[in-house]
Design a protein around this nucleic acid. Structure first.
Lengths: 321, 321
DNA sequence: TATAAAGTCGATCATATGCTCAATAACAGA
DNA sequence: TCTGTTATTGAGCATATGATCGACTTTATA
């Protein structure tokens, strides 16, 4: 009975979003019922219901929890200590939707928001993925043309198809920042291709910017036939086979690593176009992600000091301890 | 059917707040129904309903609107221009509860939050009043021991009774800041009393801090028999009579002013212990408030350049233009 | 320990909300 | 202008939510 989202595909008109915002405001902040709002705005109750649902699905209205849930705090403290993190945020899990990243996205958005709110020019690096993308959607709009958003990894397959989970562009839109996407696939077809690409001027710029970055936010994924990288066509069947063969347990910005968190010495990694991983990272590097299938990858990444901070959910945090 | 708030008087236990936060998280962010949550947490549905209601009434869960509603934006622009403001925020009004300051409080909280999020030590001055108090309740918790929160006005009556709308202390609690309340009534009994008080060392400190302040947030009120200052016992019947006689239209931090926004040359103002108004203000000075009864006071204050920014609601903004 | 006061709980019911569907309106292409 | 297609609408209904009430538990007090 909640969160109806008709949303076919295209964007609602400005006027409609405006009305939706107003209705949602009256509903959530004003505390009125939809019936009352309908009367006030001279609409049918259904129309208001739809507007409210729209505002929720379009994230015009945001929910934030401001209370340190004790068990989450404990888990966070445990992880921080165990893996020597700069910080760790743990959100409650939704026991019936362990895969859903809603809470993690909100938590990541809060961290991002805090960073980006600063006026001093700042470089932020990001990876890709559904979770990061969702986090960006949760951000409030800002106007920070002085900031730069830099991609650590390309958002296309070797075939040239772009990923729908492009994070840089959307993030730059949200905060009004300058954008530095990586014009490359995650995995090139050959080593020579990779070398050619990385010889480009644009790559040098990305490397320089990364060195100045205040923080990196990256996703993480497991390696397997169900892994997002494979499903979305960034890696071929052969790549996956090779990685499984080589006992890869996870991947960050395209770089596969073993159970100890050491980047694999595999031919596949030779074709990764992304900026190299740092271990230990020289700047705040936040892994954002959770879910049972990612636990081994997370454990390895933390063990190998591929990150200095973690945002995850309760169930995953428990599994990690 | 919404926002049931049993809240008798005392605080719920930590455990209960914890559960409430968890339930509210699952409800609003997780998007589950109360029935589902009840199953997951092994509670009755009612129990969950109560927890969610508690979380809402205790502000453990917050709603924020992230969309510039066109008409509000226009009004804000109009006011900014007309009165030469640094900024103006206009929130939608709740047509059936024109007095309620919910939306204004949220908007003020957003501004305060943004300021206070900064790490560099900062001095913030505040007045008193219901609206400001509500705004502080909307703030997220922070930890900024480097900041200082300074009161522009005492929060007690001449009889020594404290106001329940004390803002400094609550704000300092919320952000973990240092606190500088004003140990004085709004209005002393005699001019000599005021002079004696202001000779105190503490007053000199307050004056100095005010000079360093990054911003001031103040409420505003009309002058009349229904005015909060009178109802709450900060001003006697005689004071009010004298002020009405002198054609006062409003009051900020205890200082009454006429329709042009000039502080009144009245004996009552001679007994005001608060820090003096500045016109034009030497730092960001934000008036927070709205409602039909405050329109004349607001108009005068803006005309007299007693503030450099305004946070109000749609209906009030319209009336001001 | 008895007793009152206060709080908590779940059953029950009145409302509020959200989904489905059929009717209508807007629209694009012939 | 006609016609097939696609949004948009509101009615009706199934569910979800919130208020009330009496029974039960806990706490305070004598």
């Amino acid at each position: 009975m909640r969160g109806s989202s008709p949303s076919p595909s295209d964007r609602p008109s400005d006027k409609r979003r405006d009305d939706a915002a107003r209705a949602a405001w009256l509903y959530f902040i004003g505390g009125r019922t939809q019936d009352e709002i309908a009367t006030q705005l001279d609409l049918s109750r259904q129309a208001v219901q739809r507007l409210v649902a729209l505002a929720v699905s379009e994230k015009l209205i945001k929910f934030r929890l401001d209370h340190p849930i004790a068990s989450c705090t404990e888990l966070a403290a445990g992880l921080t200590e165990r893996y020597g993190l700069e910080f760790c945020d743990v959100t409650p899990s939704d026991p019936d939707a362990p895969g859903s990243a809603g809470g993690i996205a909100v938590a990541a958005a809060v961290r991002l928001q805090r960073l980006l709110a600063a006026k001093a020019p700042m470089v932020i690096c990001v990876g890709t993925g559904r979770t990061l993308r969702a986090a960006v959607e949760e951000l409030d709009s800002l106007d920070r043309p002085q900031h730069k958003v830099v991609s650590l990894v390309g958002a296309m397959s070797a075939g040239g198809q772009a990923s729908p989970y492009d994070v840089v562009m959307r993030l730059a839109d949200k905060v009004g920042a300058q954008r530095y996407p990586m014009p490359a696939p995650v995995l090139t077809e050959t080593v020579a291709d990779r070398e050619a690409l990385q010889g480009q001027r644009a790559f040098a710029v990305l490397r320089e910017l990364r060195d100045q970055a205040r923080a990196s936010f990256v996703g993480i994924s497991e390696i397997g036939w169900q892994a997002p990288l494979h499903r979305d066509g960034f890696m071929t069947d052969n790549d996956i086979s090779a990685l499984i063969e080589a006992e890869a347990v996870g991947e960050i910005t395209g770089w596969s690593f073993d159970a100890e968190g050491h980047p694999l010495d595999s031919p596949v990694n030779e074709r990764v176009a992304s900026l190299p991983l740092e271990s230990p990272p020289e700047r705040l590097t936040v892994i954002v992600g959770g879910g049972p299938q990612k636990v081994p990858a997370l454990k390895a990444a933390l063990k190998g000091r591929l990150a200095s901070a973690l945002i995850t959910d309760e169930a995953t945090a428990e599994a990690l301890l």
